[in-house]
Design a protein around this nucleic acid. Structure first.
Lengths: 230, 230
DNA sequence: CACGTGACTGACCAATTGGTCAGGCTTGTG
DNA sequence: CACAAGCCTGACCAATTGGTCAGTCACGTG
């Protein structure tokens, strides 16, 4: 899932002039990057709040503090824009959720995975939410390669779990659904942020919540796999 | 959360008796009810696919096989329509997830709750998805009483769990987060239906999946609570 | 049959939308 | 300074939107 900058893939022909490494104008490139960054951030927020169809380019422009035509200058159309945003998100996750190996200790791997995922839900709820909405709506804007990539990713991790089970390092549970369980229970804290804060009677998440929730989920899930914890 | 029919709350003044003859004496209210039902169902589907802002009344009308003006005849505006749809969903859940008591057996209660919730995710993914989208987007269309109702509901259940813990019937886990865990892990199968089917390489869920997943979640979660299972 | 009542809808409107483009602006170079 | 090259945007357009309403239709009653 390595992707180069968006410019070459998503922006109009205005990008090609500038994207070929040899820039005549360094300073110009900075502004360009900043603008793209602002647009992507604004777009992400708007897409989360209003969905794809419900989001207007004008709203994105307003949030980014740029004229509408400028959005169309950097991103040919709405479709290109959401593709860029989603790719951004997948890259982020890919970066964080590293590889695991059979030789690792199941308890440590599971704990680290859960902790990282919980923290992501707290520090980056936006991407998580947008991704969730995409899937709920049928993943119409996630390109095929992203969809199949997810399958590959799950299968890979599941294989390691299976070997652990064979080696008697954890009890016999369905590895694929174990991944779903971890994914859903952690992601929940991002997606249902609003509801959870209401129920917990809070204004926003605190640092201690991350620790408390991570610990809770580690306890239940790891013990549920028949592994001593802590 | 008992709510009477939508007609009195959401439709315009055209709410009383009516008559529309289709061959012989067709009970008047029947057509009315059927229409409302069709509209609510169509609206739910459209809202899931396109979000609130992204859904057009025309699209709902087309799906329901009715003229657009007819939608506005039954539901004054788009807001009234989504309120009716959401209320419908909350009623459905309220009906299914009954009461629990301290005197009940933790294992049975947890197992029954998980099973019911999984089955709901499989048989009624639409409502679950729409509800999730609402929460993700900040619950802008869930009225206050619905939001506070959820808090009350969770607190109530949590209290019972706490007593079980005091009685030594289950190990010491955070009751509120236990509810979140059950909610998220089961709901996941509705919301992420698309992704999960892709990963499992299936076209649609099978009856056996319900059983398999219920069993998996029961095992992990109930054992995670320090209770023997099965 | 005539008439009133309520159920329904075609046709319309003001506002908003994604997207376009001609032309102004800034920059580095000769 | 003059000029070219690329960066940017105000103003615009065709299409779509939620919502309205005057008028049509079917039925029950007297």
């Amino acid at each position: 899932m390595t992707t180069d900058t968006f410019s070459s893939k998503y922006t109009g022909e205005a990008a090609t002039n500038n994207a070929n490494g040899v820039d005549k104008q360094q300073k110009a490139g900075k502004i360009r990057e900043k603008s793209i960054e602002h647009i992507l951030s604004a777009a992400q927020q708007e897409f989360v709040i209003n969905g794809f169809k419900g989001t207007t380019i004008q709203a994105i422009a307003d949030r980014a503090g740029l004229p509408k035509a400028n959005i169309h200058y950097y991103f040919k159309n709405k479709d290109n824009l959401i593709h860029a945003v989603l790719e951004n998100i997948l890259d982020l996750w890919d970066e964080v959720l590293g590889d695991i190996s059979v030789d690792d200790n199941p308890k440590d791997v599971l704990a680290h995975f859960i902790r990282t995922k919980v923290r992501m839900s707290f520090t980056h709820p936006g991407p998580s939410k947008l991704f969730a909405m995409e899937i709920i709506q049928g993943a119409q804007h996630l390109k095929d390669y992203a969809r199949t990539y997810l399958r590959k990713w799950v299968r890979e991790k599941a294989k390691v779990f299976e070997q652990w089970i064979e080696q008697g390092k954890m009890s016999k549970v369905d590895p694929v659904h174990l991944i779903f369980l971890i994914w859903s229970s952690t992601q929940h804290y991002a997606d249902f942020e609003t509801q959870i804060l209401t129920i917990m009677n809070r204004g926003e998440y605190e640092e201690e919540d991350v620790e408390h929730i991570s610990e809770f989920l580690c306890t239940i899930i790891i013990r549920g796999c028949g592994i001593e914890y802590p």
